[in-house]
């Protein structure tokens, strides 16, 4: 059992990243993943526990120069209630509406959901569909240094990302989708509410004259990391979204999935659901 030696609750980003410079820091935001993980012994606290909830400037959802920027501290409730996102990227609102319970949505932050790096992370799938990048901040040479990493390249294994120990995820950024962009998300579990995705599927693209282009397909809980299914994207790209194409995409999605058996579902069922959901989401996209 490890003990927390220091508790920090900075108001400024520079103070936060300075504190992280030496590593050995556990970042706390909503705590909805962190506290059950530490309670059950899956994870230990580092010497410093830093609550980032009070850092100013990381709680906005803004449209800046054709890009949407969501601060890492924005809660899932905040995403679900955002007028801007409802207009410009409704797939995020759709996913927020299927996220756990109201209580958890009120506490859980976007940054936390991404950094937890669960293959089932509910916010990650729609963000992959939106081709988002994450902004990582660190203290370097007396100033706050930032770099951007494509979300697609962010995850390396369950619970693991390319984020360095001294880096804080500060924002998620994606291009404002085109007028004709349509995307949908679907997840499942044994009950409708308060559920971890058994699998989830998100699909988006520009829908023009019944065919999709710029297609992005993402799947959750079917591989060690949230998955961009590029071959399914290729199957769909530029094709008329007819029953045959949809069926082919569903079959392909099932083949791309490499799920596991666990307490939540068997690999068979996960693969089966990927096919069902791919078909369903594509029909939703077509009907948009």
């Amino acid at each position: 059992m490890s003990d927390v030696q220091n508790y920090l609750s900075p108001h400024r980003l520079d103070d936060a990243v300075k504190a992280m410079a030496g590593g050995d820091t556990t970042v706390l935001c909503g705590g909805t993943d962190l506290s059950p993980q530490t309670d059950s012994g899956l994870r230990e606290y580092a010497g410093t526990l830093m609550n980032i909830r009070r850092i100013e400037g990381l709680s906005g959802i803004d449209l800046i120069d054709g890009q949407i920027r969501i601060g890492a501290l924005v809660t899932v409730t905040g995403i679900g209630n955002s007028q801007l996102l409802d207009e410009l990227a409704p797939v995020l609102v759709e996913a927020a509406d299927q996220f756990a319970s109201d209580q958890i949505r009120n506490a859980a932050s976007l940054g936390g959901n991404i950094c937890n790096a669960s293959p089932a992370g509910d916010m990650i799938i729609p963000l992959l569909v939106l081709d988002a990048v994450v902004e990582l901040s660190s203290w370097r040479q007396g100033t706050v240094h930032t770099r951007q990493v494509s979300l697609d390249e962010f995850f390396t294994a369950p619970g693991k990302t390319v984020r360095q120990e001294n880096e804080l995820l500060t924002a998620v950024i994606f291009d404002q989708p085109a007028e004709s962009f349509v995307a949908h998300f679907r997840k499942s579990g044994p009950r409708p509410a308060l559920e971890i995705a058994t699998v989830s599927v998100g699909i988006g693209g520009r829908l023009e004259n019944g065919s999709l282009s710029g297609v992005r397909v993402a799947m959750g809980a079917v591989a060690p990391t949230p998955l961009r299914a590029r071959s399914v994207e290729a199957t769909l790209e530029g094709k008329t979204l007819d029953a045959e194409t949809i069926r082919a995409a569903a079959v392909d999605a099932g083949e791309q999935a490499t799920p596991i058996d666990d307490v939540r579902a068997s690999a068979w069922y996960r693969r089966h659901l990927v096919c069902v959901f791919t078909e369903e989401v594509l029909n939703d996209v077509l009907e948009n």
Binding site: S101, P190, R191, P192, A193, V263, R264
Partner: peptide
């Protein structure tokens, strides 16, 4: 519909409300 203690050789695999599914109000 949903509740089940998943036992594998006498060991409980789902000792939490995340994985042991009690139905909730919406259901």
């Amino acid at each position: 519909l949903s509740e089940e203690m998943q036992l594998e050789k006498g060991m409980l695999k789902n000792p939490c409300f995340r994985d042991y599914k009690v139905l909730t109000a919406p259901e």
